[in-house]
């Protein structure tokens, strides 16, 4: 509901004082000032941020599921401990991000309700299954790696609470990325079966990871306005290219093959050139037809439903406590 139509320019008939306010707002952005919750902001800026921060928060929460899928099967106690801590960090990120969204005047409950009825989006990557232990390494390496590429520029985002939340999140994400790569190093240096497991995971996660940066610039709905507002600092294609340039040598170091027969190094540009991305898959997953969309939403709904009586009990208890405190005061 927050998307579409947001990029529409202000109507030329906007009253003069409104236009002046917009100009002053843009001037603050251009001067790299941070916008804070109580500052005036255009409604479309607010809605764009709510949409983006909420999607990000939902992605963290839904993202707990594919990785949580391996907590009970982690192959050593150290790996189990690191994985629990990681999944817990994702929950923590979700919490700061919902709080950042709340500073824009929307309640967490409302955002969660949007997710549960299937109206809100979250990162399409989490609709892919985690089939082997190598997927846990690959998610850390590629998915957290892609997230970092996307998120480091957000530490300089024009909206203060979001930028500050991102500073902490990025620190933790880069830790996760190193942990993921370390799992891959162990597998790649392990038995033939472990190496095959690592290659299979790279084959399945490579393209979905590239899709995490969103549609190509020519098809991206929100890029231009978000760049003007410094919500976004680089385009989808720029970030995707950076990710590929950083990741291909890491795959080579692991002795794994990137599953793109057209991938080549271009001497003149100093960048890798990659084969075409299957955007029909991206759009299908986004629309709900990915391998795990149903399961992910069903798991969130089941937790929410199973927790209803618990939340009601906590509220009832708090109410009883408050009532007895009132009685004590009155008495």
């Amino acid at each position: 509901m927050y998307t579409q139509a947001l990029d529409a320019p202000q109507p030329p008939s906007a009253p003069t004082d409104e236009r002046e306010r917009l100009e002053r707002f843009q001037a603050r952005i251009d001067a790299d000032e941070k916008i804070e919750p109580k500052d005036w902001m255009p409604e479309a800026y607010r809605q764009t941020l709510i949409r983006q921060i909420a999607q990000h928060a939902h992605s963290e929460i839904v993202g707990m599921l594919p990785e949580g899928n391996w907590i009970t099967r982690a192959p050593s106690l150290r790996r189990k401990s690191v994985l629990i801590a990681k999944v817990q960090d994702e929950g923590g990120h979700g919490m700061y991000l919902y709080s950042a969204a709340e500073t824009l005047g929307v309640a967490r409950g409302e955002l969660v309700a949007q997710l549960l009825i299937g109206r809100a989006k979250y990162s399409s990557i989490f609709n892919y299954p985690t089939l082997t232990w190598a997927d846990i390494g690959t998610i850390g390496w590629l998915v957290d790696g892609a997230a970092i590429m996307n998120q480091i520029p957000l530490c300089r985002c024009s909206y203060g609470p979001y930028a500050r939340a991102m500073v902490r999140i990025c620190k933790e994400e880069s830790f996760h990325q190193r942990q993921g790569y370390e799992i891959m190093l162990t597998l790649a240096g392990g038995s033939a079966e472990q190496r095959a497991m690592a290659q299979d995971a790279l084959n399945r996660w490579w393209w979905p990871s590239l899709m995490m940066f969103g549609p190509s610039d020519t098809d991206s709905k929100h890029t231009a306005q978000s760049m003007r507002w410094k919500i976004k600092r680089f385009t989808n294609d720029e970030l995707r290219q950076r990710f590929i340039d950083a990741t291909v040598p890491q795959a080579e170091y692991l002795g794994l093959m990137v599953p793109d027969p057209e991938l080549r190094w271009d001497e003149t540009t100093g960048h890798y050139v990659h084969g075409p991305i299957d955007w029909s898959e991206f759009h299908a997953v986004l629309k709900g037809d990915g391998p795990c969309n149903r399961e992910r939403l069903a798991a969130r709904r089941a937790a929410h439903e199973a927790g209803r009586w618990v939340r009601e009990a906590a509220a009832a208890y708090a109410e009883k406590q408050a009532a007895s405190a009132r009685d004590a005061q009155a008495g």
Partner: peptide, 14 residues
């Protein structure tokens, strides 16, 4: 550990 991500509220999950 099996409950992580399935708690009654985010705070309880954490």
């Amino acid at each position: 550990g099996a409950l992580l991500g399935h708690g009654p509220a985010l705070e309880e999950d954490l």
